[in-house]
């Protein structure tokens, strides 16, 4: 048995990038905060572009704690949605080319999260990466770390719980 010929790299990249764009670009609040996502394979890194409107303490100055919380929450929910959709993106079942912002599949919802503020957020760009600790049928647990200039010097970290979207359950009746 010979394995099927792998798809051309451009086709794979185009499909993954289009899926990520569909997840992120339709959300006004993500645009308002200036958050972008970079992708390497299935690994996502969130980027918070610094802007004066993100300042919470004008005297230091420092990024608003609420901005940091929102940045970490957005990173977790997009990373979880991405992991949840990944098999369908790879199989081609999820095709953002054929759907508008209105037809996106149902995504996980935040139940709660706890943010630890480790250092004040400096007035420059910030980065974050989230990992899925466990993803079950109904609930998922995640962790996320955020840093600025040094990857090893986190300025915030968070852990959260999420409600997974209902799947089309087989009819047991």
């Amino acid at each position: 048995m010979s394995r099927p010929r792998p798809e051309p790299i451009q086709v794979v990249k185009q499909r993954r990038d289009a899926a990520l764009k569909a997840l992120v670009e339709g959300v006004p609040y993500i645009r308002f905060l200036g958050i972008e996502f970079e992708r390497r394979g299935d690994e996502l890194t969130a980027l918070l572009n610094f802007d004066d409107k993100l300042i919470g303490n004008p005297f230091l100055p420092a990024i608003h704690g609420g901005v940091t919380a929102a940045f970490l929450e957005t990173t977790m929910i997009i990373t979880l949605s991405w992991a949840y959709l990944w098999p369908d993106i790879e199989s081609g079942a999820f095709d953002p080319e054929k759907m508008g912002a209105e037809d996106l599949p149902r995504l996980p919802k935040t139940i709660n999260f706890t943010v630890d503020y480790l250092r004040s957020g400096l007035p420059r760009d910030a980065y974050a990466r989230a990992t899925v600790s466990r993803s079950g049928r109904r609930y998922a647990s995640m962790r996320v770390e955020a840093w600025q200039d040094n990857r090893d010097k986190l300025f915030a970290q968070a852990a959260g719980h999420f409600l997974m979207p209902p799947r089309d359950a087989p009819d047991n009746g």
């Binding site: 339709g26 959300v27 006004p28 609040y29 993500i30 645009r31 308002f32 905060l33 919470g56 608003h64 704690g65 609420g66 901005v67 919380a69 929102a70 940045f71 929450e73 957005t74 912002a101 209105e102 996106l104 935040t110």
Partner: peptide
């Protein structure tokens, strides 16, 4: 509208609520 997290329903993003809570 700029605070919307779900364009389908128009619901405000949780992050905006978090920012308000923190303040």
């Amino acid at each position: 509208k700029k605070l919307v997290g779900d364009p389908k329903t128009g619901v405000v993003h949780g992050g905006a609520v978090s920012a308000m809570m923190d303040t």
